[in-house]
């Protein structure tokens, strides 16, 4: 062991690395979770506006949604992290930059899901609500929203998993998330198979159960109109 240290800059994977990886998991999960919460809230708002009957109002959210959905997350991240501070003359820390970008990105995709889920509910369901004496708001809350939610949840989970994978991009603005630590440790130990194996496993362990849950819920959604 000693020799390895003396001879080269490479070192074995050490016990300390376990803590580093755990910390990294914390970073990944923190950034992802905060962004998902913010993104979901904003996305729901945008999605509801998209459902407006007024064509002009309903297309307004597209102005921010489309660029976010049709450009790479890295570019968005760099634009926010390096670009915005230049324009506004402020210093933006990596954490807020990462969370801001991921939240906006999540919101754009979430809004589409919300919009699609609501429009997927047939008009006959609205009519049924009205026929029972519900007002517009009441029909929405009691009839439409609950059905839309059942369509939405599995797709939302899939989106969340996807955003978790996307969160690895924050390593490119040097946040010490799982991916970044993997990179550092892999270079240091020269054991790419072991280190990236651990990284794969960490992401997989978080994602896979969620993916299973999503496909289970998806199968349970069995509407027949």
């Amino acid at each position: 062991m000693q020799e390895v240290h003396v001879m080269g800059q490479y070192s074995q994977l050490a016990v300390g690395d376990i803590y580093t990886f755990l910390e990294a998991c914390g970073v990944t999960l923190l950034v992802t979770l905060v962004s998902l919460v913010l993104g979901t809230l904003l996305g729901t708002a945008l999605g509801l506006v998209r459902c407006s009957k007024n064509k002009i109002i309903s297309s307004l959210p597209l102005i921010i949604m489309e660029p976010l959905r049709n450009s790479p997350l890295v570019v968005q991240l760099f634009l926010v992290y390096y670009g915005l501070p230049m324009v506004f003359g402020i210093l933006l820390d990596a954490y807020p930059a990462a969370i801001l970008t991921l939240s906006l990105n999540t919101a754009a995709f979430f809004a589409v899901l919300v919009h699609n889920s609501i429009t997927a509910i047939p008009v006959s369901q609205w009519e049924a609500g009205y026929a029972l004496g519900h007002g517009k708001a009441s029909t929405f809350v009691n009839v439409i929203f609950r059905q839309a939610l059942r369509l939405l949840i599995p797709q939302a989970i899939t989106l969340y998993i996807n955003q978790l994978q996307c969160s690895s991009m924050i390593s490119l603005i040097s946040l010490r998330d799982i991916c970044r630590i993997g990179q550092l440790v892999s270079v240091r130990t020269m054991q790419p198979f072991l280190v990236w194996g651990i990284v794969f496993a960490l992401y997989y362990v978080i994602s896979f159960p969620l993916a299973r849950l999503a496909s289970y819920l998806e199968k349970r959604v069995n509407f027949s109109y």
Binding site: V187, W196, Y203
Partner: peptide, 15 residues
């Protein structure tokens, strides 16, 4: 699908 592309990319690049 359950691992990030960036990690897959680094994996190939390093290994």
């Amino acid at each position: 699908r359950n691992t990030p592309f960036l990690v897959q990319l680094f994996f190939f690049y390093h290994s």
